[in-house]
Simulated scan of single mutants.
Amino acid sequence: MGELIVVTGPPGAGKSTLAPHLAERLNPSVLVPGDWFLSLWRRGAVPPWLPEAAAQNEIGAAAAARTVGTFARADCTVVYDGVVRPKELPRWLTTAGDPVTHYVVLLPPADLCVERVVRRSGHGFTSEEATRAMHADFAAEGLERYVVEDAEAPAEELATRLLEAIAAGNHRVPAPGDPAPEG
């Protein structure tokens, strides 16, 4: 079975900039953009940051998890670029078939995330309020072990450092039944 690298964090953290650089350095690899699953909705779509989008978001997340699991079972290293909050991760990984997973959290300053989101001007995730709330959620989760230092570094440099950290097991999510990692 292949492995899974989940590149996550709040909107504007740099996930979609970094993820392709990781996927390009792995062989075989697949890049799965989580936003794509939400973009499939045509009529009746609800902006994903609104509370009434919960069911829609859950369907998209389940489809994404099944997709990454399918590629991982085909012995590909899958790089998933999307928001997978820590409290959602166990269920999401179960849906994916519990591949060996590395959880990479990008958490640059909230103001930088907001600046990037506002620059999107009308496409994708554009809610400043939701961006700040999600940043606060990730910051409050006690994810120090998974948070990438200097997430604002150039993507190529960051990809090199991350792949070294992943190879060392620094971002590995314990498998079901494994003891929790120290630190």
Rank of each mutant, 00 (worst) to 15 (best):
E156S: 01
A61Q: 04
R116K: 09
P179K: 10
R116T: 05
H102N: 01
R116E: 02
E88M: 13
L93F: 13
E58F: 15
D178Y: 02
P47Q: 06
L112P: 05
V100Q: 11
C113K: 12
P20F: 00
P20S: 15
P86L: 09
T95F: 09
P11Y: 06
M1G: 01
V147I: 12
V78W: 15
Y80R: 14
P86Y: 00
P176E: 12
D35F: 13
A64Y: 03
E164C: 07
R91G: 04
L107M: 02
A74D: 14
D178G: 01
D150Y: 05
L31F: 14
A168I: 14
A54E: 14
W49M: 12
A136F: 13
V84G: 06
V147D: 04
F37M: 01
T77G: 07
A139R: 10
A62F: 09
H171R: 13
E141V: 14
P47E: 09
S39N: 11
W41Q: 00
A13L: 12
I5C: 07
G14F: 00
L50T: 13
G82K: 02
D150F: 02
L22D: 03
H135G: 15
L163Y: 12
A55S: 15
A96V: 03
A61M: 03
A55N: 07
A54P: 05
I5A: 11
E88P: 10
Q56L: 04
R85S: 06
F138A: 15
A180D: 13
A54L: 09
P154V: 05
V105P: 02
R43C: 02
P108D: 14
F125H: 09
P33Y: 04
V173F: 04
V32F: 11
F138W: 01
A165F: 04
V7R: 01
A175P: 03
S121P: 01
E152D: 08
A151H: 05
V147W: 08
A168M: 08
P174H: 06
P86R: 09
V84A: 10
V117R: 03
V30L: 06
S29N: 04
P10F: 06
L38Q: 04
E52C: 04
L26M: 08
G183A: 10
G122R: 00
V104I: 04
P176T: 10
Y80K: 09
T160M: 02
R120Y: 12
E157C: 03
L162Y: 08
V148K: 02
E156C: 03
V84F: 12
R42E: 10
R161Q: 04
G82H: 07
G34T: 05
L4D: 05
W92T: 02
W41R: 01
G44M: 05
G142R: 00
T17S: 04
R161C: 09
I59L: 08
V46Q: 07
T94F: 07
L4S: 12
A159R: 10
R161L: 11
W36M: 01
R66Q: 15
L158R: 05
